[in-house]
């Protein structure tokens, strides 16, 4: 019996906090620039904004060694399978940040060539508006994601949360059927 099977309570909660604290401080993004947002992403990694202050200056060239995919830019229909493949190649636990309006919802490109939101193909943990977002906005989104990571459950709790999320996702309206401003 591993520590993760121990009854949830004080001990496991403390481990969750500790693991979350350690996890959030070493998130490595995968190099994945698709369009103009990537310029701002590079700026965020460079000296003026300096993402290394949050332990994530290394943009990994291989998805196998990365935990965070920053989808920076519009995803064309042709690029979609590649996005999914990069995501699938990343090892668990992994997170997705949808940077900019094009990646988040298609933005102003409401046409047949652009995927209307990267959440059609990969689960997105945090959306970042802006066209393109300034590096501060990206850092703000990353810090918000860090808090999400720090709060994420482990072991039994993680399985239960995953099951609940899956049940909720099956109930929810598919993204492509959303109406109104959510389209």
């Amino acid at each position: 019996m591993g520590i993760e099977e121990a009854p949830s309570g004080f001990l496991l909660t403390t481990i969750e906090d500790l693991a979350g604290y350690l996890r959030k401080a070493s998130v490595w993004p995968v190099t994945f620039g698709l369009a103009c947002c990537a310029i701002e992403m590079m700026a965020a990694g460079a000296s003026r904004f300096d993402l290394s202050r949050f332990g994530m200056e290394v943009f990994r060239a291989s998805p196998r060694q990365a935990d965070l995919m920053i989808v920076a830019g519009r995803v064309s229909q042709k690029m979609a399978p590649v996005v999914r493949q990069v995501y699938d190649q990343m090892s668990e636990p992994k997170w997705v940040l949808s940077m900019g309006v094009c990646a988040s919802s298609g933005g102003m490109f409401n046409n047949y060539a652009i995927v209307q939101g990267v959440d059609h193909i990969v689960p997105v943990d945090i959306y970042l508006p802006g066209c393109p977002p300034r590096p501060e906005m990206l850092i703000n989104a990353i810090l918000a994601l860090h808090q999400q990571i720090a709060d994420s459950p482990l072991g039994v709790n993680r399985r239960e949360a995953a099951q609940a999320a899956e049940a909720a996702a099956l109930e929810a309206t598919p993204t492509f059927q959303m109406k109104g401003l959510l389209r």
Partner: peptide, 18 residues
């Protein structure tokens, strides 16, 4: 950073999980 000025009207749909 996580605390938006709007307190996020809806919680994350997947609870930080997938």
């Amino acid at each position: 950073a996580a605390k938006s000025s709007l307190d996020w009207k809806t919680a994350p749909a997947n609870g930080g999980m997938r």
